[in-house]
Amino acid sequence: MALNLSIGSDGPDSTRLALLMIVVGVAVAGYGGYDYTQQSEAVANAVEVDATVVETGVEESSSRRGGVEYHPTVEFRYRYDGANYTGTDVYPASTQSNFDTESAARSVLDGYGEGERVTAYVDPNAPAAGFLKAEESTAPMKVIGVGGLFALFGVVSVLRS
């Protein structure tokens, strides 16, 4: 049984595709909203801990726009409430920011050299999810926007059919 879906055509297949786009878009936007809320709470509840930077770097990956994106990476160790942890997040959001240039990604890691003692942050409700910067990332808002646009495109497709 073949699945024949095309955007811009009329009929039940195009309506199903448009409805699927709406569902996926709402789900993606919902995840972005959840991530935004989680990071806001983590920043509000953050307590400082001493940490040691183990490793830093920049990962390169292909972007959706056909170019290259760069993502800062870090590993640091810290102790909280008598337990040892290893963290890998610069910001508390699970959706991490990507940058258009390697230098922009590296600049996020300024002041976090390997072997350095730094201040990290933990939410006492989730001590294993430590992060280096008690700031909110814009990445969850971008996810909300992409999901919203996807859902909007689906709505427009339903209205046109």
Rank of each mutant, 00 (worst) to 15 (best):
S9V: 10
S63K: 01
T52P: 09
R16D: 08
S40D: 01
T101W: 00
A46K: 02
S103L: 10
G111V: 11
E114H: 09
V53T: 03
V90G: 03
T86S: 12
G111H: 12
P72V: 05
V43L: 06
S9P: 05
S103P: 12
D100N: 01
V26N: 06
D81L: 01
Y80N: 03
Y80L: 06
A46H: 02
A126K: 09
G87F: 06
F76S: 11
V74E: 01
N45Q: 03
G32Q: 03
E55V: 06
N125I: 09
V68Q: 12
D50Q: 09
E59C: 00
E60W: 03
S94P: 01
R77I: 05
A51T: 06
S9F: 08
E102C: 00
R79T: 15
R65F: 11
D89C: 09
A105H: 02
R16G: 07
T52G: 04
A46N: 03
A27H: 10
Q39S: 14
Y85K: 11
V108G: 04
R65S: 09
F99K: 03
A105L: 01
A46I: 04
V118P: 07
F99V: 03
R64L: 14
V28F: 10
A44P: 05
V47F: 07
D123F: 14
R65D: 15
A46S: 05
D81T: 00
A29S: 02
D13S: 10
T119W: 10
S9Y: 09
A46F: 00
Q39R: 09
N125Q: 15
I7A: 11
Y78L: 15
Y121D: 14
V26Y: 06
R106N: 14
R106T: 14
E116H: 04
R65A: 12
